[in-house]
Amino acid sequence: MNRLAFLAFTAPLVLAAAPAMDKDNPSCPAAPGWGEAKAISLSTAEKGGKRVLIADGIIEETFPDRLKAALDKDEKIEEIWLRSRGGDARAGNAAGKVIRSFPGMATRIPAGWTCFSSCNFVFMGGDRRFVDPGGVFMVHMFTHTADRDVIDLSVGEGTDETIKLIGEIEQSSAMLASEDNDFLIRMGISRKLLTDIMYRQQAVASTANHSTRYCLSQDEVRKYNVVPQETAG
């Protein structure tokens, strides 16, 4: 009876610990743990007996060079822990390639942390990759059409400017899609991550559908080789 009473008491506490989910993006937490809205910082720490480099913040164009300098400076670093809402797409790809140039380097998204958008490609650079239970690998469809200020300005300037902008968006988006595809192949990620997940997300929220993000489950990060089977767990 005492054991039953204990289970009855603790069950609500376990349920309460589950994070609230985003009503617009139901696979994702309502409050993603992607850190502060500031330029990405780099710091080192000892975690579980390992030397870890912590990358926390918004990815900007200087990040790949700073990341390489940090890894060159400290040969004891074994893992890179990531928490970011994303940022510069091409800087994310470049940073992923920097990580891959250090053989055996691992990347990790710890419990409670979120890696979103261009952070996905930084994470994919790891030779070994871990998404801890409670860690969030959050994706969306990469697009240039979400810059409403630029679009509104071109519309205000007339049809010719709008057509020009549409052409630039189409060209830039096609180039970025090609780069993403090439990057996934190089990093050993299933291309189906793009076709099945990323490119199926709505680019811009609409009145009828507010969902623009998707968070992979533990099964899905393995299915698409985001976390290689040999490093799972």
Rank of each mutant, 00 (worst) to 15 (best):
I58G: 07
S41W: 02
V98I: 14
D72E: 15
E61T: 01
F6V: 15
V14Q: 02
V139R: 02
R51G: 01
S178P: 04
I163H: 01
I163S: 04
F116I: 01
I151D: 11
N225C: 01
S217K: 00
A174K: 15
N225E: 10
A203R: 14
V221K: 00
E46G: 06
D72K: 13
R129N: 13
S43M: 06
A94W: 00
A106G: 05
Y214N: 03
D149P: 06
A106V: 03
S27A: 05
H144K: 14
A20F: 14
F6T: 15
M124V: 05
V52H: 09
P19E: 10
G92E: 06
E61N: 02
Q229V: 05
G135F: 09
L194D: 04
L216P: 01
E179Q: 15
S172V: 01
W34C: 05
P103T: 05
E157I: 02
F142G: 13
S206N: 03
I151S: 10
R128Q: 13
F142D: 14
T162V: 10
Y199H: 13
R213F: 04
L153M: 11
D56P: 01
R90D: 15
L153S: 11
V98R: 05
C28S: 08
N181D: 15
M198A: 06
N225D: 12
N2I: 09
P32T: 03
S84W: 07
R222Y: 00
R129H: 09
L67V: 06
G156W: 09
M1H: 11
D88R: 10
E168M: 14
T143V: 08
E161D: 12
Q171E: 15
C119L: 13
Q218T: 00
D22V: 07
T143Q: 14
A94E: 13
L194A: 04
A16P: 06
M198N: 03
K73V: 00
F121G: 04
T62L: 08
P32N: 04
G158T: 04
A70Q: 09
I185G: 12
D24L: 03
N93H: 14
I189T: 14
V98P: 03
E157M: 15
A89W: 14
K23F: 07
A89C: 00
G125C: 13
D147E: 14
L176W: 14
F123M: 12
D219T: 07
L82N: 01
G49T: 07
I77N: 02
L193D: 03
S84I: 08
S190V: 02
G104D: 07
L53F: 09
F137Y: 15
D65C: 00
D74P: 03
A8V: 01
V226P: 02
Q229Y: 01
F102E: 01
F183D: 02
D22G: 01
M175K: 13
N181L: 13
K50R: 13
Y214F: 13
D182L: 14
N120G: 07
A146F: 12
E220V: 00
V98D: 05
A91R: 10
E161Y: 11
M187V: 09
S190I: 04
N209R: 00
E168A: 10
